[in-house]
Design a protein around this nucleic acid. Sequence first.
RNA 1: GGAGAGGUGGCCGAGUGGUUGAAGGCGCAGCAUUGGAAAUGCUGUUUAGGGGUGACUUUAACGAGGGUUCGAAUCCCUCCCUCUCCGCCA
Length: 424
Amino acid sequence: MLDIKLLRSQPNQIQDRLNLRGGTIDLTEILALDQTVREIETRRSHLEAESNDIGKQVGKLMQSGNKDGVDIQALKDRANEIKHQIANIEPEEKVIKEQIRQLLLVIPNLPDQTTPIGKNELENIEVRNWGNEYKGLPDLLPHYDIGEKLGIMNFERAVKVSQSRFVTLLGAGAALERALIQFMLNTHAQRGYQEVLPPYLVNSASLLGTGQLPKFAEDAFKCAEDDLWLIPTAEVPVTNLYRDEVIEAEKLPIYHCAFTPCFRREAGSYGRDTKGLIRLHQFHKVELVKFVHPERSHSEHESLVADAEFILQALKLPYRVIELCTGDLGFGAAKCYDLEVWLPSANQYREISSCSNFNDFQSRRANIRFKAKKQKGTEFVHTLNGSALAVGRTMAAILENYQDAQGRVVIPDVLQPYMGREYL
RNA sequence: GGAGAGGUGGCCGAGUGGUUGAAGGCGCAGCAUUGGAAAUGCUGUUUAGGGGUGACUUUAACGAGGGUUCGAAUCCCUCCCUCUCCGCCA
């Protein structure tokens, strides 16, 4: 959520920066409503001040024993008159305030000053790449084919049990998934992230806090009987751990890593990535979440990306780092790097992690502040998060990049201790 | 699911419908004391919105939302949450 005061004080600059995203966001309505509501608010405050004053006078007169005096009745009459006047303007004030809130909630974040300007994904920037694009064997199989051939992956039965876009892992496939999760969590924990195992069902306030609601309700699964939703990412429960809290400044930065299943309706993606592990309604992800001092958020973002890259490098999977341009940035992100892993069967890179800096966008919505000792007032923290990594897509990358001439899949060195074997 | 108890500031904990943003304590900060510290003493210490360059001023907030009243932390209603006991349960 943007700061209404910033919007008020420099509407043109804000408009220009929002325009870099390419959408059409009109701020005139919200600015007009803001102007109106402030006028009403001032009037109401004055009326309430008078009313408070009368209350005190009545109190004094009552205590001095003058319970039925004429002057008391006159004061009461005046106070009732004020009450009616307030009742006349207050509903309008509430309605307008709610309108402003609703409008603010659907305005995307301002792109960071350092985010490259561009219209769409074609203008994203490749920052660096790592490893060789493995062209593979001539008879290299896509991950879903080798997975089924090895008997570690079954799509048909998952469809029977649920519906399309679900998978079942079997035997070594299930073990590999579990090994990846263990390896990722252990690595991050060693590197300073506190592990969290959060709830997988969250309330609407949490989704509002991280920005999935109100705009993207159709992307999430909802439990109709309850105010509960299946999490689309661990970002939601982990970020909201600190909702409505004031953190002591010296406790920052806070680093968490979390493994969770993620549930996404994938509305509007019919026919895309229908085969394999790439786009499922349920998948596993290890997520990194940071709460940091605003002054440090840029460097914290870089190190977050490095922590995600560390996993890819440990697994020896070729990848590249893409910095998203303003036109391709997600709703809440101010700056974002995608990590894309090499998938030889498709002869292309596919997103395996997205590392975003939200600046104070989420913390404003979720009301996550910090307070420095000796300083008056509070400030909003900056929140950052990134996948490290999407487990299913990592499995897909391993199944393709590690195929050998015998049709086996070599298990990456770092996973062998977890698997107790060298090949699938 | 049934029965009961309770939600007050960073924390603990008082609270009578009337100048209570809220006693007291802890914690924290500053000052004094000390060779230095502990102990002690004094002072200060919520957040958010509006107005003002500013000192400042004004409004709101005692789980949330309504109601009664000139006036509500205090009385009434609805909802949420927490705890205890019983039942059910991995």
